[in-house]
Computed example of a mutant assay.
Amino acid sequence: MPTIALLILSNIFMTVAWYWHLKGGMNKPILAVVLISWGIALVEYCFAVPANRLGYANGWSGAQLKIAQEAITLTVFAGFMVAVLGEPLHWRHLAAFACIMAAVAFLFWGKP
């Protein structure tokens, strides 16, 4: 599904834009970090905007688009947290993800 694929790409770029500097970039000036992050976020918008337009045009509601994006964000961030930041996953992360997936189910179940 193109909407999901574009949202995944968008979230990869946004996660990098927001968190890349936490590992090894803490010594960079904040203005440089902000400008670099804005540049990365621009690429993110190039995926997010078409994903939302395409999803909406294909019958997804705004709420469905947002909750799908949140579920994808948690999945992408979990991978980034482990692979880049070196932080372990905990049962609380899985419980939070289960709650978000329940929200996804509520918004997509019996779609009008």
Rank of each mutant, 00 (worst) to 15 (best):
W18E: 11
L89C: 09
A57C: 02
L42G: 15
S61P: 09
S10N: 14
A68V: 10
S10K: 00
W60D: 12
A41C: 05
V43S: 05
I40Y: 06
L89R: 14
M26S: 13
S37A: 13
G39Y: 03
A95I: 09
G86W: 05
L107W: 06
H90I: 02
V84R: 13
K23W: 00
I12A: 12
Y19V: 03
G62H: 04
V34R: 15
M26I: 05
N52S: 09
E70H: 10
A5V: 11
A78L: 15
F106L: 14
K111M: 04
H21K: 14
G110F: 01
P112A: 03
A102H: 04
W18C: 03
A51D: 07
R53Q: 06
L31M: 08
S10G: 15
T3E: 13
M81Y: 09
T75Q: 00
Y19C: 05
W20P: 11
G110V: 00
H93G: 04
M26W: 03
Y45P: 00
K23R: 14
A32I: 06
A57K: 12
K28I: 06
M81E: 03
V49S: 03
I36H: 06
F13K: 10
I30V: 10
A5Q: 06
I67L: 08
L89Q: 14
A96Q: 10
G59Q: 10
L7S: 02
G55S: 07
H90M: 09
G25D: 08
I40P: 11
G59K: 12
H21N: 12
K111N: 08
A17E: 07
M26E: 14
A41I: 02
I8W: 09
N27A: 11
Q64A: 05
A68K: 01
L7C: 03
G39R: 02
P88Y: 03
I67Y: 07
V34Y: 12
Y45L: 13
G24F: 06
P112Q: 06
G59P: 13
L54I: 15
F13V: 03
K28F: 12
Y45M: 14
K66T: 03
P88S: 15
A57T: 06
W109N: 07
I8P: 02
V34T: 13
W91I: 10
H21G: 01
M81K: 15
W91H: 11
K23H: 08
W18H: 05
I8G: 04
A78E: 02
G86M: 08
P112E: 08
V16G: 03
V82G: 00
A41V: 01
